[in-house]
Design a protein around this nucleic acid. Structure first.
Lengths: 155, 155
DNA sequence: CTAATACTTGACTAAAATACTAGGTTTATA
DNA sequence: TATAAACCTAGTATTTTAGTCAAGTATTAG
């Protein structure tokens, strides 16, 4: 489990989709504008997201992307896994025979931790994040009158 | 909160220290051998770990590094924060006025998630990982007879 | 005191990942 | 048919990662 800006972009873009499920297909150009991510980079990311069956696409004018499942059944871990190819943290390729003792031990402790992080992020869905936004967002901004109507459309 | 190989190296090295607290100061050369991390890269990492007061160093022959606190009061989050300079996930620098509405919203949802991850890793200490190793390690390897004695010295 | 050991610092480099650019081709809508 | 969008490919600039090298400084065993 890696957690880089790449994963952040992917989660951000997926959140954008989740917030606009009722607007029909969302074009990448639209997400690019809203989230400040370059169009072509989004294309790369969505190519992977589609391969992982997290989104579906509709081509042609008026087309775009949609979540391929309920926001409540798409976890943050799934999104991050989709765009970050997984790495092998051990030097022995996981076989556990790298050098007898310590060497292997610390590697294993790391992979154990890594798994815990993964499980943690697997328990957080897009729906969780979207649900939480009302409190969080209002607490963050003072001048939010025009956003209130908008926010009610979502989810 | 970023989670890269850099952070993994740092946590691995700190785990190595935690496993050898009773052996006196541990030289970086020793960690380099055991964990397969280049000496000079370790020097860079430990320079940051020391600045963050997570380790202390003893110079001269027989010197090396030691944890600067109980393993039970050093969290994984602290270690990762020490070596990864923090990034600003928002485009507005956190002021919350980047573009009205969505743009800010998804950024905030991300930082909210990021904080959750941070809290999670803040709850996991080196001692937790070391404690867990007995079960985990034995489960992983079959031929662990000679390691058993060794393991009893630790912690 | 001297020499060995070990940490400190900074500059530098190679390789990988990241983020983006450019230029296309399909596909489907209107 | 014109257009908007996905989709594809290749290339590239930037940043990060990971490591090297070299010239130090501090400490202490002998």
């Amino acid at each position: 489990m890696r957690l880089t800006t790449k994963g952040r972009y992917a989660v951000t873009a997926m959140l954008d989709l989740a917030l606009h499920t009722q607007d029909g297909p969302i074009s990448l150009a639209c997400i690019s504008d809203r989230q400040g991510i370059s169009l072509s980079y989004l294309e790369q990311l969505f190519s992977k997201l589609k391969k992982s069956l997290l989104v579906m696409s509709i081509r042609g004018p008026g087309g775009g992307y949609q979540l391929n499942a309920q926001a409540s059944s798409i976890s943050v871990a799934q999104i991050i896994d989709a765009v970050n190819e997984s790495i092998d943290a051990t030097n022995c390729g996981g076989s556990g025979d790298c050098q007898q003792g310590d060497f292997c031990l610390t590697h294993h402790l790391w992979t154990d931790l890594s798994e815990q992080i993964h499980n943690f992020l697997n328990g957080i869905t897009l729906a969780d994040l979207v649900k939480r936004k009302d409190i969080a967002f209002i607490a963050m901004r003072q001048d939010n009158t025009q956003d209130l109507n908008f926010r009610q459309n979502v989810n």
